[in-house]
C-alpha cells in the first residue's frame, strides 16, 4: 500500500475525490499497471498469492495465482466475524461491503443471514455510523466512476 501511495503522490500533488481518482486511473493504463503490480507483489510477499513463470523463452508468461489456503482464511474470517454474535472489525466490514457490491459474498455464505448482519452494520449507532456511511459512499462512487468511465469508453 505504501508503494501505491508513493506512486500516486509522485504523479499527482492535487487532492482529488475518490471518484476523480478512479477516472484518473482509468485513462492512465501504465500507471494503473504499476499500481496493480505493486498490489500483486505485496500479496505475494504476504503469502496470499504465488507467481508462476514459463520456462519457455519463445512465449514467456507470468501468472499470479491465488493460494486456496489464503482465500479460505478470508472466507473463515468473514464467517467468524459476521455470522457469530459480536462486534465486527472495521476492515472486515469494509471488505464485506465491497464484496456485497460485487456479489461475491453469495458464493460463500447463506445470503439471508449475511444480509441481516450487513444491514445491522449499516445501522450501527454513534461514531461507527460515520465511517460506515463514508465507506458506502466511497463504494458507490467507485461503482459510479467505473460505470461512467466504461460508458465513456464504449461511446
Amino acid at each position: 500500500m505504501d508503494r501505491v501511495l508513493a506512486v500516486v503522490r509522485n504523479k499527482e500533488n492535487k487532492p482529488k475525490s475518490l471518484k476523480k481518482w478512479i477516472v484518473y486511473f482509468y485513462y492512465r493504463q501504465r500507471l494503473r499497471r504499476q499500481v496493480h503490480q505493486a498490489i500483486l507483489q505485496s500479496l505475494v510477499q504476504k503469502g496470499a498469492m504465488k507467481v508462476e513463470e514459463s520456462k519457455d523463452q519463445l512465449i514467456p508468461w507470468k501468472k499470479y495465482l491465488d493460494i486456496d489456503q489464503a482465500r479460505e482464511f478470508v472466507v473463515q474470517k468473514i464467517g467468524a466475524e459476521l455470522l457469530e454474535p459480536g462486534t465486527v472489525e472495521k476492515s472486515t466490514a469494509t471488505l464485506c461491503l465491497l464484496l456485497e457490491k460485487t456479489n461475491l459474498l453469495k458464493s460463500y455464505y447463506e445470503e439471508k443471514q449475511l444480509k441481516e448482519k450487513l444491514k445491522e452494520i449499516k445501522e450501527q449507532e454513534q461514531e461507527s455510523i460515520i465511517w460506515v456511511k463514508e465507506v458506502c459512499k466511497a463504494i458507490n462512487e467507485i461503482e459510479a466512476a467505473i460505470m461512467a468511465s466504461f460508458g465513456g469508453a464504449v461511446t
Binding site: K77, A80, E81, E84, P85, G86, T87, V88, E89
Partner: peptide, 12 residues
C-alpha cells in the same frame, strides 16, 4: 471468546 465478543470486543 463468545462472551467477550458479545461484550463488544473484536477478534483482534
Amino acid at each position: 471468546i463468545s462472551r467477550w465478543r458479545k461484550d463488544g470486543l473484536t477478534i483482534s
